[in-house]
Amino acid sequence: MPSPLPRRTPEDRIRRATVADGASSFDGFPPIDWIKDTGAPVSPVLVTWAAGQCAVLPIGICWDVVRLPIDTGSEALRQLHALGSTIGPAIASLDSVEVLVPVHSADAWDLPGCSVLQIGEHLVAPSPLFGAPSGVDGRTWLHRPGADCALTNGDDLYAAFAAALATVSEETAPSTSPRGRP
């Protein structure tokens, strides 16, 4: 009878993630530099993810988070993609899209329906292994963090969200005939 495969320890996972972090594309191992940059201890984050749970990461040290309603947030990301803009990590939950942006790049946002999460707040993040449509606790990555740690430009996201608000409101407005009758 063949011997069972050895169980991987958290240290094995961390070592493999460190090796994989140098790769230029997602290969099933989470890049860890973006975790290190937050100041969060890497080992507990990886152990939490290995247990199939979301990890809590501090916001405001290396990135802020813009939380958008799910419909307009998804439309804003679609518009950014269509324009060829860089889209950094983004998480979808049941009612929102959370986009990682450079620190302070969304400080002056004044559009309705959005909120900016900054220092002192936390991102609840599933493992980058969970991209749409799968997820953990109703959260999934729409755009996974990459080894390059690229973030979405705050000004580009603002413009795309403003356009998405207009698009969604046009789609939900009652249509009228040329004579003003529904």
Rank of each mutant, 00 (worst) to 15 (best):
W141I: 07
H122G: 03
D156A: 14
S74K: 06
V45C: 08
H143W: 12
S134T: 15
A163M: 06
I32R: 03
C149R: 10
S169M: 09
C114H: 02
Q79S: 07
L46D: 00
T48R: 08
P128R: 04
D107R: 15
D37W: 06
R7A: 12
V101A: 07
G146K: 09
L151W: 00
L94V: 07
G73I: 02
A163N: 10
D137W: 00
D148G: 09
F26E: 13
P133S: 11
R179L: 13
E121A: 15
D110I: 13
F26V: 08
I35S: 10
P4L: 11
N153C: 14
A108H: 13
T9K: 07
R181L: 12
T176K: 07
P44M: 01
S105Y: 09
G88N: 01
T167F: 05
L80T: 04
V136W: 01
D37R: 12
E170R: 13
A82S: 13
P128S: 05
D21H: 11
V66W: 01
E11L: 14
Y158Q: 09
G28H: 12
H143M: 08
Q118D: 11
L83T: 10
C54D: 11
A40P: 03
L57N: 03
G84K: 09
T152S: 11
C54T: 10
S93R: 09
T9E: 12
P112R: 12
P30G: 05
S134F: 04
L46N: 00
Q118H: 12
L46T: 05
S175D: 06
L80C: 04
G180Y: 09
H104L: 14
Q118G: 13
E170H: 08
V99Q: 03
A108S: 15
D12G: 08
F130K: 10
R67G: 01
A173W: 07
P31G: 10
P145H: 05
L83Q: 14
P10H: 09
A20Q: 11
L151D: 02
P6Y: 10
W49V: 09
L57Q: 06
A20R: 11
P102M: 14
R179S: 11
D95G: 06
P178E: 02
T72W: 06
W34T: 05
V136E: 05
A76L: 05
A23K: 07
Q79P: 03
P133K: 04
V101I: 15
W34A: 06
S74P: 09
I59L: 03
T18C: 08
G84M: 02
S169L: 09
R67Q: 05
P44F: 00
A125L: 03
C54W: 03
V99L: 08
